[in-house]
Design a protein around this nucleic acid. Structure first.
Lengths: 106, 106
DNA sequence: TATATTTGCAACCTATTGGTTTCGTAAAAA
DNA sequence: TTTTTACGAAACCAATAGGTTGCAAATATA
């Protein structure tokens, strides 16, 4: 199925799951309680998130704890990096314009 | 159709378009030359990107120049912010572990 | 004016997505 | 041991996504 991280975070439910388990690991049942859909539907999202390594599982008896692989999220950050330079440049240009305006005032 | 920015960047073609026009504005035809699909298919992507305000259009005669609204990309960055604190904390924890290990060596 | 170019839009088609219900299995509890 | 609980997997379904072809309209060019 070759899912990538950008597809993974495209779905609002999945983004909510990510935010939900960011601080502590949770089981599918307790995660599903927070959404207006069946446990199985939530489980599908968990599978997708796990497949692209955004989540990791830890089995504890019959329960499975899902937690966030925070490092994987940095890949989004990495993709943004190529544009960060551009928006900083724009900001500096704006800054220059403003300081020129300022000098004119003087 | 209510598309959001996360859906917009989920498609690899759209991410390529974003990267392509990041530095200079381009017309649909010249953008489409870079892809292995019809001009109309590319135009659909342009429409989606424009609808969620990632691109803006500028008409010049019969040509339309598309350029990137770099500020809109910052919304992704903003979403990442809530996790940035977590990954920095993790890093600091690791840092602490390392410095403790170091002290033990002494 | 007649023709070519650039573009958007609509109709259409297939694959994928995101949900459902139903089921099987393993672990825990009674 | 029997029953309950936690979970994943499979079959199914409607809506959407992402591509296509075929137009029409506006601008530029001959």
């Amino acid at each position: 199925m070759r899912r990538d991280i950008f597809q993974a975070i495209a779905d609002p439910t999945r983004r909510a799951i990510i935010a939900l388990i960011a601080l502590q690991a949770m089981t599918p049942n307790s995660i599903a309680e927070n959404f207006d859909m069946t446990r199985q539907a939530v489980s599908k999202h968990l599978r997708i998130l796990t497949e692209c390594e955004l989540l990791k599982q830890e089995q504890k008896g019959r329960e499975i704890y899902y937690s966030l692989e925070i490092n994987k999220l940095k890949e989004i950050d990495k993709w943004l990096n190529q544009f960060r330079k551009i928006w900083e440049d724009r900001f500096n240009q704006l800054d220059q314009v403003l300081s020129i305006a300022k000098n004119k005032k003087k």
